[in-house]
C-alpha cells in the first residue's frame, strides 16, 4: 500500500524489517506480521495489560504503541523470555504457584512481573499488587499471581 512506512524493530534479539501502515498497532504487528501470538489483546482502551511487552526494558502495553513508534527499539515478548528447560524465574513462579488458569492474561502478567522485579528485586506484597495493577486477571483473584512473583523474587 502506498502509505506504508518502513520500520526496523529488534524483537527478541532478531532484527525485523517491514513496511507497515502508520496506524498499525505494535500488538498487531507482533501478532500478525511476525506471528508472535503470545502477546494477547484483551481490550481496546489500554486497561487490561494482556499485550504487555518490554520496549527497551520498560513494560509497555503494545496496543497503545504504533509499530512505527517502536522503530529502532528493542522489543521483548513472552516468546523471548525463556523456554522449557530454561524458564525465566517469573515463568517458573507462575507454574509452581498456580499463577494462571485460562492463561490469557498470563504473558502480559509475566512481562509486568519481570519488569517489576527488574526495578525492585525484593518487593513487598503491596508493591507487587501495585506493580501488576495495570494488568487484569479475571480467573485467579490475583493471590496466586502474587505468590508467583514472590517465588521469582526469592529465586532471584
Amino acid at each position: 500500500m502506498a502509505n506504508e512506512t518502513p520500520v526496523s524493530i529488534k524483537v527478541n534479539g532478531k532484527e525485523e524489517q517491514r513496511d507497515v501502515e502508520p496506524r498499525l498497532l505494535l500488538a498487531h504487528f507482533l501478532r500478525e506480521d511476525l506471528g508472535l501470538t503470545g502477546t494477547h489483546i484483551g481490550c481496546d482502551t489500554t486497561q487490561c495489560g494482556a499485550c504487555t511487552v518490554l520496549i527497551d526494558g520498560k513494560s509497555v502495553k503494545a496496543c497503545t504503541v504504533f509499530a512505527v513508534q517502536a522503530d529502532g527499539s528493542e522489543v521483548t515478548t513472552i516468546e523471548g523470555v525463556g523456554a522449557e528447560g530454561e524458564l525465566h524465574p517469573v515463568q517458573e513462579g507462575f507454574w509452581e504457584e498456580h499463577g494462571l488458569q485460562c492463561g490469557y492474561c498470563t504473558p502480559g502478567m509475566i512481562m509486568s512481573g519481570i519488569h517489576l522485579l527488574n526495578e525492585n528485586k525484593n518487593p513487598s506484597e503491596q508493591e507487587i499488587r501495585e506493580g501488576i495493577s495495570g494488568n487484569f486477571c479475571r480467573c485467579t483473584g490475583y493471590q496466586h499471581i502474587v505468590n508467583a512473583i514472590q517465588y521469582a523474587a526469592k529465586k532471584g
Binding site: R31, L36, T37, G38, T39, H40, I41, T77, I78, E79, G82, A83, E84, L87, Q91, F94, W95, E96, H98, L100, G103, Y104, T106, P107, I110
Partner: peptide
C-alpha cells in the same frame, strides 16, 4: 499437583482462536 497445561501457556504457546 502443578498443572500440565501451564508450560505452553507461560511461554505464550497456547493457541487461542485469534491465533
Amino acid at each position: 499437583i502443578k498443572r500440565r497445561e501451564d508450560p505452553r501457556l507461560i511461554q505464550g504457546l497456547g493457541t487461542y482462536v485469534d491465533d
